[in-house]
Amino acid sequence: MVKIIIAVFTLTFFVWSDNAYERHCVSCHRELPTSLQRMFMYYLEIYSGEKSVKVALKRYMRNPFRDVSVMPELFLDTYGIKQPLKLDERELEEAIEIYWETYQVHGRLK
């Protein structure tokens, strides 16, 4: 009974958690060895600015291909390519926006 309650609670938390980023990104990436922070740095290293990074993220979320991935070959060989995200436009943009705000470098350097 307790397990059922915990399972329902967890499911409810993920489904009705605060934002799209938490709901659709964090849950899956918990299982990967490379953190979202490190992946963000890969994006920064290749796309540099906010607009470029966001456009690249959105494009990859919709059409995840190996040749456009920012991840190293070893990672891709091990974990493969993700499935295309089936999110509506608004939710995807919200998730990307939160992702940018969470890990962006601007204002964090001292």
Partner: peptide, 9 residues
């Protein structure tokens, strides 16, 4: 600066 000429630091 990033590629959009925004100052990073």
């Amino acid at each position: 600066f990033d590629n959009e000429y925004h100052e990073i630091f």
